[in-house]
């Protein structure tokens, strides 16, 4: 685009973002994003959650550079060492450095959570928005399917899927995604139901808009904020389910440094060597908490009703 503003100085960018009237589509969108960003900054808890998650992403990216050890290499001469200068978080029963394993495990946890969100989010959004907008038999079939999924606790359902698919990280992701989309679909449907009779949908219908266009461009943008909020809040549950599957030996397999699997193998040393179980447990808690805080903050940023 040729209308890119001069962004050399900070003040002109700020003026551009806070101008009372936008003069290009890009500026209008940037201004809307800027207002959302300022609302997020105003919410301390959400900001804390965001910072923890950014740290997690950084750690996942550069983790190997922060430690001299390998997550797999065993050294039985230093097994079950308490935290020290050499091993800040101690070593496990096979003499592996726990901090190294936590750093590498961040990658696995983040990837699983992200993959589940990328699979379950769109499926739930499309199913829910379509069912809510179209109604009729599609709605009935889709919602009874959701009912069936919702009638099992999600961990039990994920267990059943993993039992059928076989253990492993990929299958754990598929199993968790299969148990995570129904609540999202239900939420998106509820949002779609509130807007299907609205005047702006009617106005677009009167311009000849097809059902596909209405669902994709009008209903889904309305459902999207609550779906994003819900997925962020669900991330904690997804991570816990992934860790739970790892703990039960159905997710990541040893010697993979997945946090749940680490917790499981540390369990038998819990009374004598607490750091084996406590460190992955604390990591899981911290990340879950961060996602919850961020989800709460996103509600303030994305919810259109507050504007």
């Amino acid at each position: 685009m040729t209308d890119t503003p001069v962004t050399s100085s900070r003040t002109s960018l700020r003026a551009w973002l806070e101008a009372p009237a936008a003069s290009t589509p890009r500026q209008a969108r940037a201004q809307a994003a800027w207002r959302g960003w300022k609302r997020l900054l105003a919410n301390r808890a959400a900001l804390a959650g965001l910072i923890v998650l950014i740290l997690l992403v950084v750690i996942a990216a550069i983790g190997p550079l922060l430690t001299p050890y390998s997550p797999m290499s065993q050294d039985l001469s230093v097994r079950l060492q308490p935290p020290s200068m050499l091993h800040p978080l101690g070593t496990d029963d096979l003499g592996r450095d726990i901090m190294t394993r936590i750093l590498y495990g961040a990658r696995i946890t983040l990837m699983m959570a992200l993959l589940v969100a990328l699979i379950a989010g769109p499926i739930g959004l499309i199913m829910g928005a379509t069912a809510g907008y179209l109604g009729g038999w599609f709605d009935i079939v889709a919602m009874r399917l959701v009912d069936i999924f919702l009638s099992f606790p999600s961990l039990i359902l994920a267990l059943a899927f993993v039992a059928a698919l076989g253990p492993g990280i990929e299958n754990a992701v598929i199993a968790i995604a299969l148990s995570a989309w129904p609540p999202i679909a239900r939420l998106a449907r509820a949002e779609a139901l509130t807007v299907r009779k609205s005047d702006y949908i009617a106005a677009s219908r009167l311009q000849g808009a097809s059902s596909t266009r209405l669902i994709l461009r009008h209903v889904m943008p309305i459902c999207l904020p609550s779906v994003v909020i819900r997925i962020t809040l669900n991330m904690a549950g997804i991570i816990l389910t992934a860790a739970g599957l790892g703990f039960l030996g159905l997710g990541a397999q040893p010697p993979s440094p997945e946090w749940g699997a680490m917790l499981a193998s540390g369990r038998q040393f819990m009374l004598t060597n607490w750091w084996l179980a406590a460190t992955p447990g604390a990591a899981i808690m911290l990340v879950s908490l961060a996602f919850n805080l961020l989800g709460d903050g996103l509600r303030d940023v994305l919810d259109p009703r507050d504007e």
Partner: peptide, 25 residues
């Protein structure tokens, strides 16, 4: 429509709202 507060999509820029009939037709 009667109520201009509900006949424009709250999340779409005016340009997108006006562009729509032109795209469809």
């Amino acid at each position: 429509f009667q109520d201009p507060y509900s006949s424009l999509h709250p999340r779409r820029m005016i340009r997108a709202t006006l562009m729509e009939p032109l795209e469809i037709h």
